[in-house]
């Protein structure tokens, strides 16, 4: 048996002998991975929803006062040109607004005199913006501009994403915090169960040291074990997540959740990275104590 096959043989036979500790490690790892998976799914879906909202063409419509002067219209245009966060804007005169409405809905204004119809409409600016922060700033600036209507409904934000995104961001933050806490907790738990396994092998380790084994040679089987445990745990977790995500996504169809296949590949990579990372760090750190012979 060569050195590499010996390492695998040693890792697997030691896992068989320490089945109880190995099961505890796998269980801990699955629990950790499930929470990581849930947090990841929440964060990814929140991100997806934010993008979905951002993609909706949000725009601000600022209605001007009936007595707005041409100078004020020009002044507003100049202000908008200077304002940061403004993507583009257009000006619609009262006449164009009436014409547009008549074209879109020919019956709506029937029976009204031109005078009455004119009193219904005012000229307006339509502004599209670059970011959520810009939306709030632009609205605030428009409210104090001369010529812009001072009533609340004079400035309308269609498809406002602010609230939805704020909610999604809160969910995202909670998800990330949860993720950090759980990873920290599981490093601790994995370290403990590795310590138990190492305790069982402490005599063997000291003998290995006496016969001239390097620390690297001793560590490798433990690292192989950590990787095997991570692989098993990742597999089980992915199975569970696949089943439950399907059920949950089905029940929450109205929320526009990401499709399972959009999440699973990235999640598998993350779980493998988290699992092997936790395993390798946990076992290496707890080994140092026993290697000092």
């Amino acid at each position: 048996m060569g050195t590499i096959s010996y390492w695998f043989y040693d890792a697997i036979s030691s896992m068989k002998k320490n089945l109880k500790n190995v099961s505890i490690s796998i269980g801990t790892m699955i629990a950790t991975m499930l929470v990581v998976a849930i947090a990841f799914i929440v964060v990814e879906n929140a991100k997806y929803m934010i993008n979905l909202q951002k993609d909706k063409a949000s725009k601000i419509t600022a209605y001007l006062t009936p007595d707005v002067t041409d100078e004020q219209v020009v002044e507003i245009r100049n202000e908008l040109n200077k304002m940061s966060g403004v993507k583009e804007f257009s000006y619609t005169t009262k006449e164009e607004a009436i014409k547009k409405t008549r074209e879109e809905n020919p019956t709506l204004l029937k029976g009204y005199t031109d005078e009455v119809v004119e009193s219904f409409f005012s000229a307006y600016y339509t502004i599209t913006f670059e970011s959520l922060e810009a939306e709030e700033n632009i609205v605030a600036a428009l409210r104090v501009m001369d010529g812009v209507g001072k009533e609340k409904e004079d400035i309308q934000v269609t498809d406002s994403a602010v609230e939805a995104i704020k909610k999604a961001r809160t969910v995202q933050a909670i998800g990330l915090t949860l993720l950090l806490l759980v990873v920290e907790l599981s490093v601790f738990l994995i370290m403990n169960s590795t310590k138990l396994m190492l305790y069982a092998k402490r005599k063997e380790i000291s003998i290995m040291k006496y016969v001239g084994a390097t620390d690297g040679f001793i560590k490798v089987p433990f690292i192989i074990q950590a990787i095997i445990i991570a692989l098993i745990a990742a597999l089980v977790t992915m199975l569970l997540v696949n089943i439950f995500y399907g059920i949950v996504a089905g029940k929450m169809a109205t929320y526009n959740l990401l499709a399972s296949e959009d999440i699973m590949f990235k999640l598998t990579l993350i779980l493998l990275a988290v699992g092997t990372g936790i395993g390798i760090i946990g076992s290496s750190v707890s080994m140092n104590k026993y290697l000092d012979v």
């Binding site: 048996m1 060569g2 050195t3 002998k17 000291s206 003998i207 290995m208 006496y210 016969v211 001239g212």
Partner: peptide
């Protein structure tokens, strides 16, 4: 190195205990 308490690996056969010392140094 030989100790008073032998320090053999209980779960390995006589052959494996001896072979072990060669394995750790990477003998073929």
């Amino acid at each position: 190195i030989v100790f008073q308490d032998f320090r053999l690996l209980e779960d390995k056969t006589v052959y494996e205990n001896v072979a072990y010392a060669m394995r750790v140094i990477g003998a073929n």
